[in-house]
């Protein structure tokens, strides 16, 4: 496996470069824009929702930011992942290269983008009087799980998108619905306890919650959340890679 990766390392690096260049159109403004757009979203959301939900929630802006941060990374990575096969069809139908490289390179550029926004997030947190403790290191755990989750889901989505070309619209609707049940701008405290537990069925909510516990509450979440994080990641990557392997040589007929 490692040897195989080594063999394709050069190609992988070139693909990452290509995705990054295409994304930002080689301008500094392009990079600024990718940070600016989540900030703009944050600004509007905090203007509107602080009045509705934010009065009782401490550090509401950071609460909102954490939700947006995680959710937009999830959305960007899976959307890009979904496209990765169809967009590179001209390449892998003509040259023999492992197809998962396209998905991975797209995920790397999404992750870098997430990293940039994460820095801005920490700056905001510092201004908001959040105390930075050693516990912040634990943030690596949900990030790692989310990366695996996104890759796994990307596998599934990219394969589906090859077969069904309206996947993009369906997935857009799905992510929109998912956003509303991810508790991005409201808190779940007002729900009865039975309903509240239902939120854990949503993987994105679990990752967001982990973030908020560490950053806002300053505590390391319990074992259950840790298990949920890794469980969702494993399910996604397992189904995704199985599905990919199964259809690896069939994609060709559909493109």
């Amino acid at each position: 496996m490692l040897e195989k990766f080594k063999k394709h390392q050069f190609l992988f690096e070139e693909l990452v470069k290509r995705d990054f260049k295409n994304k930002y159109k080689r301008t500094v403004l392009g990079m600024v824009w990718s940070i600016l757009s989540p900030l703009l979203m944050l600004l509007v959301m905090s203007l509107v929702f602080t009045h509705l939900f934010g009065r009782k929630t401490p550090h509401y802006t950071i609460y909102l930011f954490a939700g947006n941060l995680v959710f937009s990374y999830f959305k960007d990575a899976t959307n890009g992942g979904m496209n990765s096969l169809v967009a590179n069809a001209a390449i892998f139908t003509k040259v023999n290269v492992p197809k998962y490289l396209f998905l991975l390179s797209r995920n790397v550029s999404s992750l870098l983008n997430f990293g940039l926004t994460l820095i801005v997030f920490f700056v905001f947190a510092a201004f908001d009087g959040i105390l930075f403790t050693w516990k912040f290191i634990f943030l690596l755990y949900p990030i790692g799980c989310l990366v695996i989750f996104n890759i796994g889901l990307g596998f599934i989505l990219s394969a589906l998108y090859v077969f069904f070309r309206d996947m993009q619209y369906l997935y857009d609707i799905f992510t929109m619905l998912l956003m509303y049940v991810s508790a991005i701008f409201y808190t779940v405290d007002t729900f009865p306890i039975a309903y509240r537990n239902l939120f854990y069925l949503n993987p994105v909510y679990v990752y967001i919650t982990y973030f908020r516990r560490i950053v806002i509450d300053g505590v390391i979440p319990g074992v259950v959340i840790h298990l949920f994080c890794i469980l969702y990641a494993m399910i996604a990557i397992f189904i995704g890679s199985w599905y990919y392997k199964k259809y690896n040589y069939k994609f060709l007929y559909y493109l």
């Binding site: 290509r18 260049k21 295409n22 159109k25 390449i91």
Partner: peptide, 21 residues
Amino acid sequence: SGFDGDLTVRENTYLRGAMLG
């Protein structure tokens, strides 16, 4: 086919070279 129109000739050369192993 398989070249990227937005990348430069140099970048495409490297990308293609990488694809060919």
